[in-house]
C-alpha cells in the first residue's frame, strides 16, 4: 500500500542557524494512527508544520497522497487537517462561524449539514452559538478539532491533542480519535503522554535532535524492547538473596518479602522454569506472583537517553 505521506531527507535550519530537522525519512500509511514521540525541542512540531505548509523546509521533499507539498500545495493541503498544540482560537467568534470559516478557507462550498454533524460528533452542538472565549479549555480543543475536520480531510494532525486536558476529557478525546480512524481518517499525533500513544497508536515513531531514531509497530516495539518483570510474594521474609541464586537477575525488596526477576521477552528462554526450580530447591516458597511489562514510556526514555 502506497504511503499517504512520504517524507524524504527533510531538513530545516532556522535563520539563526538552529538545525531543527536533520534529514528525516518517514512514511505514514493510510488509515493508521501514528504517534510521534519525542522530548521537548526534538522537532515534532517543526516536522508537522512543514508538512502542513506553515514552515518552509530548507531541504528534502514531502508528498501527501502523491502530491508534492510545494509544487502541488493545493491538492496536498486540501487533504490535511491540523489541530495545533496551542489553543489558538478566534476568541470573539462563535463556534459555528469559526468552523464555517475554516471550511471556506480550505476551498469547500458551505455545508451546514456537515458542520452540524461535526459539531454533534464532538459534543459541541449546544455551544454552536457560544463565543469561543466563553468555552472551557477542553471545549476549545474540540473546537480546534471541529475546525480541522470542517473540510473533510483524509489526514488529521493532532499536535499534543490532550495537553492540559483532564483525565476524563482525555479519554473522551481518545474516543473521538478512534471514531475518526474508523471513518478512514489517517491520524498523526504527537504527544507527551506516552500512555496516549500506548493506548491508541498503531505505529510509533521516536524523534530526537531532529532525527527519527525509530519507527515501529507499537506492539512489536513493546515486544522487542520491552522487558518483563516477575514479582514473587514470599511466604517467609528473606534477609538476603541466597548465594545459589546469585547468578539470577533477582532483586530483593527492602522489606524482604518480595523478589523481582527481570527477563527479556525477546529471548528464546525466559529462565522462569529454571528460576522456580532453584527457588524450590532452596526452600523459598511464595504466596503469589505477578508479571508486568515495561511501558512505552520506559522504552521511550531509554531510547532518547542513548547517545546520538
Amino acid at each position: 500500500m502506497a504511503p499517504i505521506i512520504s517524507i524524504k531527507q527533510l531538513q530545516k535550519t532556522y535563520t539563526g542557524g538552529f538545525q531543527a530537522i536533520k534529514g528525516v525519512d518517514l512514511d505514514i500509511n493510510p488509515g493508521e494512527i501514528f504517534a510521534l514521540l519525542g522530548p521537548n525541542g526534538a522537532g515534532k512540531t517543526t516536522l508537522i508544520n512543514i508538512v502542513c505548509g506553515i514552515v518552509q523546509a530548507t531541504g528534502g521533499s514531502v508528498t501527501v497522497d502523491g502530491h508534492d507539498i510545494s509544487k502541488n500545495f493545493r491538492a496536498a493541503r486540501q487533504r490535511i487537517g491540523l489541530v495545533p498544540q496551542e489553543l489558538t482560537t478566534d476568541a470573539f467568534e462563535t463556534v459555528w462561524n469559526t468552523t464555517r470559516f475554516s471550511r471556506g478557507l480550505f476551498g469547500k462550498p458551505p455545508s451546514p449539514a456537515h458542520i452540524e454533524a461535526t459539531l454533534k460528533s464532538l459534543s459541541l452542538w449546544d455551544k454552536k452559538d457560544a463565543k469561543i472565549m466563553t468555552l472551557s479549555g477542553g471545549m476549545k480543543r474540540r473546537v480546534l478539532i471541529a475546525k480541522a475536520l470542517s473540510h473533510e480531510p483524509q489526514i488529521l494532525f493532532l499536535d499534543e491533542p490532550t495537553a492540559g486536558v483532564d483525565v476524563e476529557l482525555r479519554k473522551g478525546m481518545w474516543d473521538v480519535v478512534r471514531k475518526l480512524r474508523e471513518s478512514g481518517v489517517t491520524i498523526i499525533l504527537t504527544t507527551h503522554y506516552i500512555e496516549e500513544a500506548e493506548e491508541m497508536a498503531d505505529r510509533v515513531g521516536v524523534i530526537n535532535n531532529g532525527q527519527i531514531i525509530l519507527v515501529q509497530e507499537k506492539r512489536a516495539l513493546m515486544a522487542q524492547l520491552g522487558k518483563k518483570e516477575l514479582t514473587l510474594q514470599l511466604s517467609d521474609k528473606l534477609s538476603e538473596i541466597p548465594s545459589a541464586l546469585a547468578d539470577e537477575q533477582l532483586t530483593l525488596a527492602n522489606d524482604g518479602l518480595s523478589l523481582t526477576y527481570t527477563y527479556d521477552t525477546k529471548s528464546e528462554r525466559t529462565g522462569i522454569t529454571q528460576l522456580l526450580g532453584k527457588l524450590s530447591e532452596n526452600g523459598i516458597r511464595f504466596t503469589d506472583l505477578d508479571t508486568t511489562q515495561s511501558s512505552l514510556e520506559e522504552i521511550f526514555v531509554n531510547l532518547v537517553k542513548r547517545p546520538a
Partner: peptide, 13 residues
C-alpha cells in the same frame, strides 16, 4: 498575535 494565522498558512490558498 493570537496564533490563528496557522490556519491561513496551512490552507490551500
Amino acid at each position: 498575535f493570537s496564533g490563528t494565522i496557522f490556519e491561513v498558512l496551512s490552507a490551500p490558498i
